[in-house]
Amino acid sequence: MIVREVSAADYRNRFPQAGHVFNSIQFASLNASKVGKVLYLLIEDEGRTRFGLILGDRGDLLASPFSAPYGGLEYSRDERVEKVSEAVEAVADFGREKGLPVRLTLPPRFHSPEMNMKITAALLNRPGALSHADYNYHYELNRVTDFEKWLSPSARRNFHTSLKSDFRFEPLGNTPDDISRAYEIIRINHESLGHALRMSRQAVIDTAEVLKADFFIMTLDGIDVAAAQIYHVAPGIVQLINWGDLPAYRSLRPMNFMAWKVMEHYHAAGEKIYDLGPASEDGVPATGLCDFKEGLGCRLTMKFTFKI
C-alpha cells in the first residue's frame, strides 16, 4: 500500500462522511491552528483507496487525533485483516519517511467493533507500539428504563439522596449565553478539583458551530448547581465532554441526578450509547472516577494509544 497526501477537498471527496466527528474535515479545520500542519492522507492499494487518515504535525510527532479524545483510521467498508495490517505498515513507513513517529489513539471498541478490533490487533502485533491504554466507560441507554437495577449499593444511596432535593433538569440552547451559562458551572467545578479545563469558553462556542453539541443545566431553587456538555459523535453515540457541580451543593449528590436525567433524555431521543469518556490519564486510572462510573452501571472498554 502507498500513502498519498492530498488536499482537504480531495480527502472530503473520498470520505464525505466521517465514521465519527473527530475524524471529520470540519473538526480538523477548526483545530488546525493547534499544530504546524494538518496532513490529509489517503492509503491506497491497487488503485483503490482503502483508508484515510488525518494527522497533525506537532513538530516531534504526527498525531491522530491532535486535539480530540480519539482519531484513528477512516474507512468506508470493512476490510480484511491482511489489508488492515498493510495499512498500518504503510502509515509507519510514512512516518519514517517524515522522520517522525505516528501516534494513534483509537476510539473505544463500541465504535465499529469488528474493524476497531482488526486495527487494534494490527497495532498490538507491532513490538513496542502500545503507548498506553485508558479506562473508558459507556452506558447502554436501553438500561435506563430500569436505572436503579444497575446501580451499585453506594450509587443507589447517593441517587436516593439526590431525589430528596427539588433539582430541575433543563436542556439549553446553543447560543453563546447558554453555552457560557453551562461553561461557568463546569469551570468552577474543575477549578475546585484542581483540574484545568482543556477548552476555553470561546473554543466551546466555536466547536458548537461545526458539530452537534448539547448543553444541560440543573438548578435548585433557581440557582444553577450543575451542568453538562455533550457531543453527538457518531450515529447512535453521544459523548460526555465535560460536566460538573458546584462544590457547595455536592453533598446533595446532583451529579447522580444529572447522570440519570441525561441518560433518560438520550434514550428518549433514540440514541444507543452514552460515552462517559475516560477515567484515566495516560493509562493511570483515577480510581474514584472509575468507581463512580462503574457504580452508575457503565461498562468498561479500553481506549488504546499507539506510537509507530
Rank of each mutant, 00 (worst) to 15 (best):
M1H: 11
R4Q: 10
R4H: 07
G19C: 03
H20S: 02
V21H: 02
S24G: 14
I25F: 06
A28F: 02
V38P: 12
L42W: 11
E46G: 04
R48G: 02
R48K: 14
G52L: 13
G56D: 06
A68S: 14
G71R: 06
L73E: 00
E74D: 12
E74I: 08
Y75A: 13
R77G: 02
E79N: 11
R80I: 08
V81M: 06
K83H: 10
A87S: 07
E89Y: 12
V91H: 04
F94A: 05
R96K: 13
E97Q: 11
G99L: 15
L100N: 12
R103W: 02
L104K: 14
F110Q: 09
F110R: 11
S112P: 02
P113V: 10
N116E: 02
N116S: 13
M117S: 07
T120M: 04
A121E: 09
A121V: 04
L130S: 10
S131Y: 02
H132F: 14
H132W: 00
H132G: 05
A133E: 14
D134R: 08
N136L: 04
E140L: 11
L141T: 05
R143Q: 10
T145I: 03
F147A: 03
F147Y: 14
E148A: 06
L151V: 06
L151A: 03
L151G: 01
F159M: 05
H160C: 00
F167W: 12
R168V: 08
F169Y: 02
P176H: 00
S180H: 04
S180M: 11
Y183V: 01
I185L: 07
I185C: 12
R187M: 07
E191H: 07
G194M: 04
H195M: 09
A196E: 15
L197E: 08
R198V: 10
R201L: 13
A203D: 09
V204T: 15
A208P: 03
V210M: 08
A213N: 09
M218S: 05
T219C: 11
G222A: 10
V225Q: 07
A227H: 08
Q229G: 08
Q229T: 00
I230G: 01
Y231E: 08
H232M: 06
I237P: 05
Q239R: 14
L240N: 12
L240T: 11
N242E: 04
N242W: 10
N242G: 01
W243F: 01
G244D: 06
D245S: 15
A248C: 02
Y249T: 07
Y249C: 02
L252R: 13
R253M: 15
R253W: 01
M258W: 01
A259T: 15
W260M: 05
K261E: 10
E264P: 01
E264Y: 10
Y266W: 14
K272I: 12
D275A: 12
P278R: 13
P278L: 09
D282R: 06
D282G: 14
D282K: 14
C290D: 13
K293L: 06
G295S: 04
R299D: 07
I308H: 02
